[in-house]
Amino acid sequence: MRARGLTVLGGVTFAAVLAALYMALIDAPPERFMGDLQRLMYFHVGSAWAAMLAFFMVFVYGAAYLFTRRSAFDRAALASAEVGVFFTTLVLITGPIWARPVWNAWWTWDPRLTTTLILWFIYVAYLLLRGSIADDARRRVAASIFGIVGFLDVPIVHFSVTWWRSIHPNLISGGTINMDPAMTRALMVNGVAFVLLYALLTWLRTRLEAAREEAAQLRHRVYERIADRPDERERAGRNSESDIS
């Protein structure tokens, strides 16, 4: 049942990614000043949307875990955070590739770019923190709380960075692009494709984590069985004794 859902989602995502590639690379016209380079924007913006959704879901899953204490939510939070960091890394790589020829600088303190960088730091710290707590109950609580606090921080980061850049003379202007309808369409399809990709990857990663936890549990059970054997025999002996008395 769940596997079929996964197959369906996988198929839909595959089709959406193909459509997105076609629209971004072939259907949409080249931009007037930037030429083909501008096509990078479709993927850049698409992964940024998916990343924002991912981090929002880390917040939602974290809160859900704290309320219900069901480990499934925690696994979903972990998966979302990992996929989110992956998409954020894509944003941070495609951004400078595009910026270098257009703005003549690898890095600019553009508000959105800066916010993305800080988000990347926050969620890498989230993943490192998870990795460093051995006790699973404490890891889940700490991670859920960090996910909530981290996400609450995002709007403040964004506003403060935006104000910071608007107070300073902004050397780079003209970031707006005259959008052809085909371009808008390509952007939308790419956004949908990346969100689907996010859902698919998160689902797979959650399953992987569940399998990993189950394997660890089974391993402990086996060890315990082995360690229990002499004990069980002894207890069986004691029980039969008390039955007689």
Binding site: S132, A142, W164
Partner: peptide, 25 residues
Amino acid sequence: LTSASEGREILFPVSLIPLTIPLLL
């Protein structure tokens, strides 16, 4: 939050700084 973490000495500053960026700014 990091009290159960094995690498607290480094994870504490690593998580402190990005969360305090707006304040530091």
